[in-house]
């Protein structure tokens, strides 16, 4: 296992209870280190389960997940995790919360880094956590995670209860963290806000990985096409979605070869790509099984 891999799942599955349904099944993917990865999918798709498995807070029912080249438990000191409900002690002040972080992480606590994250939000260190807004609590939770000097930050819906300004500021803080080399994995069901910040995508739907890879590669592997319905055979190509309106056919496809010159084609946006796959659960997945070979070749060539 190379250390340039932040996260690797192999046939990973999780079932809650003996008779429960599978929250996640057959998940295989590789996330290279240094990426900012969006975990996207509808509510109940398995995003939180995936993050909890990576954080070592839940054990896989089958398969395995490797974090920073080792088990989630062994990797824990090098991983920062912020759960969806951002658990903090409400009776502590912000300063006390950070002191607790320092006590819990002896020897590798980044006092300046943690205080910078708090300072970015114009917060009073003496304010008690229970008096803070959602955005302010997220900022304190992030300060606690950043203070650990994590190599990998796992964030479950970090932007969910934030107003647009707080989202932008917090995303800026996260991107500054990424610029220091921290791998970031964050889940969201709002795709549009991730498009400029993330460079890697895991699309989770129905407990399975639907798309996985570099966003640029995934976008380049698809085309939005339109043409006359009577004369536009989609045949050799993988069709994710197609629609006929009057005489016009529009489709999102994975081209299997050159496209005829009389089609109008365009690269889809990330949101179009994600929505088309979610609207069509039957569309084939595009995951490392399909792309692993080329990735390995690139590594060997490098």
């Amino acid at each position: 296992m190379s250390s340039d891999t932040a996260l690797r799942a192999e046939a990973l599955g999780k079932r809650f209870g003996l008779r429960g349904g599978w929250a996640l099944r057959d998940c295989s993917f590789r996330l290279p280190a240094g990426r900012v990865c969006a975990v996207v999918g509808p509510n109940g798709a398995g995003k939180s389960t995936l993050l909890a498995l990576a954080a070592g807070l839940a054990a896989p029912t089958e398969g395995s997940v490797t974090v920073l080249g080792t088990t989630p438990a062994a990797a824990r000191p090098r991983v920062g995790f912020i759960a969806q409900d951002k658990p903090l002690y409400p009776q502590l002040t912000i300063a006390e919360t950070l002191r607790m972080g320092a006590d819990l992480n002896p020897g590798h606590w980044d006092t300046d880094g943690a205080e910078q994250v708090v300072a970015g939000g114009d917060l009073d260190p003496e304010a008690r956590v229970r008096t803070l807004s959602g955005g302010q609590r997220t900022r304190v939770a992030l300060a606690l995670a950043v203070g650990k000097r994590p190599e990998l930050l796992l964030l479950d819906e970090p932007m969910a209860d934030l107003d647009p300004l707080a989202r932008h500021e917090l995303m800026g803080t996260l991107m500054a963290q990424a610029a220091r080399g921290t791998t970031i994995v964050m889940s969201s069901h709002v795709v549009a806000e991730l498009e400029d910040s993330c460079d890697h995508l895991l699309l989770v739907g129905g407990g399975r990985i639907r798309l996985s890879g570099e966003i640029d590669d995934l976008l380049a592997a698809h085309r939005r096409v339109s043409g006359a319905a009577a004369t536009t055979p989609l045949d050799p190509h993988t069709v994710i979605e197609s629609r006929v309106t009057g005489r016009q056919l529009t489709a999102l496809i994975r081209p299997a070869g050159p496209l005829p010159g009389d089609w109008r084609t365009a690269t889809p946006s990330l949101e179009e790509l994600v929505l088309a796959h979610l609207r069509n659960p039957g569309a084939p997945a595009l995951t490392p099984a399909d792309t692993a070979d080329t990735a390995d070749e690139e590594e060997h060539a490098a």
């Binding site: 995303m171 803080t173 991107m175 990424a178 910040s197 460079d199």
Partner: peptide
């Protein structure tokens, strides 16, 4: 500006 300065202000990916 450094990548860090740009991304902190714009919230875009540092690799961009």
């Amino acid at each position: 500006p450094t990548a860090r300065e740009v991304v902190e202000a714009t919230a875009i990916n540092p690799n961009t």
